[in-house]
Write a protein that binds this DNA or RNA. Structure first.
Lengths: 182, 182
DNA sequence: CACAATCGTTCATTATGCTGAACAATATTC
DNA sequence: GAATATTGTTCAGCATAATGAACGATTGTG
């Protein structure tokens, strides 16, 4: 995959996400329509200033133009041991998620009390959430894909749709990592 | 700050980190020395292919050239409540760390047993680790800045120096997020 | 229906980034 | 110490990215 074609799809993706026409984005960024048109066509070899102008007009950091879209599900149960360095008796660690390309990840500590269900609206497109349950039991996930998790479980899911959190035990604590855009 | 000057310092930083001479990097990347020289001098307006070639030769993703360096300490105790959305009785969440610019964050689940101390070598420059204790008590941190943490505590620290982990309780579990380069 | 506006694409001209050779300044080797 | 690489910089020529006007296609409006 050539870098230009990657940029091409990235620009198109971000532009449609921003609900901007090609002409509007071009004038907003201060570049010629023709330049932008060729770029989105996967042709040419844009300069840094051109890319910068486009990213600024889209109101996103430049690195957002270098990301490859993906989103997926993954559950790692507390008793599933990826044997990574488990030979060290005093320490065993499990890689829950890595971040191959640059991404934005915000880290939250969440306390839940049993009772009502906490609904969360859809986040920006391609947002992914990582949940790790530290204490108690919770049911969470995107609409139609709720998972019941217990202490030590890890769950990753797309969060660009409606999703919810609910404590099944009296109290629950979890680590939530919001990652966008994936 | 102009985008070119940012790239200029970024390239120099990554090149010295890779212990490469300007000439060596140029030939490795397949670009003219003059091009690279001008770039590091903060002049010009590089094309995407040029940047791509340089990043590839440095063996880093392109987005690493757009990051602004920083690193810092932060501890959030379990009983420190950032009142964020604490008005919702059934849910209260605390933002532990956000990620203003693009960054790489790998997520680990770590189990510790009391006894020996786990020593970790210095990671690449500007690496930061986020530790969140889910169970038990641990003493961890960089050399000369060990912190004792208990359940629910969060600790962020530079990990580009030697650091260590030690369980103070019988068993301990924590979430570790490795972020590089910050 | 006709008119106007906006859409995205294509093409000559202009501006400029990339190149390669020549350069002085260190660093290395016998 | 002289000879030889290797460092990073500067400058003319070429390659090409960016431009702006003209284009047909599509949409909106009276």
């Amino acid at each position: 995959m050539t870098p230009v074609s990657l940029i091409a799809t990235a620009i198109q993706r971000e532009r449609t996400r921003a609900k901007m026409s090609l002409s509007a984005l071009a004038s907003q960024a201060g570049v010629a329509k023709s330049t932008l048109s060729q770029l989105e066509g996967g042709q040419g070899n844009p300069s840094l200033e051109t890319l910068w102008a486009i990213a600024s007009a889209l109101n996103i950091p430049l690195s957002f133009l270098f990301e490859t879209p993906k989103s997926d599900f993954r559950i790692i149960r507390a008793d599933e041991e990826d044997q990574l360095s488990s030979d060290l008796s005093e320490l065993s660690s499990t890689l829950l998620a890595d971040c191959p390309t640059s991404c934005r990840r915000d880290l939250y500590r969440v306390y839940l009390k049993s009772g009502s269900v906490r609904e969360a609206a859809a986040h920006t497109q391609n947002t992914v959430e990582h949940a790790f349950v530290c204490r108690g039991q919770v049911r969470l996930g995107p609409e139609g894909n709720l998972q019941e998790l217990t202490e030590g479980d890890y769950f990753r899911y797309p969060a660009d749709v409606k999703h919810s959190y609910e404590a099944l035990s009296d109290k629950a604590m979890l680590i939530l990592i919001m990652e966008n855009p994936g």
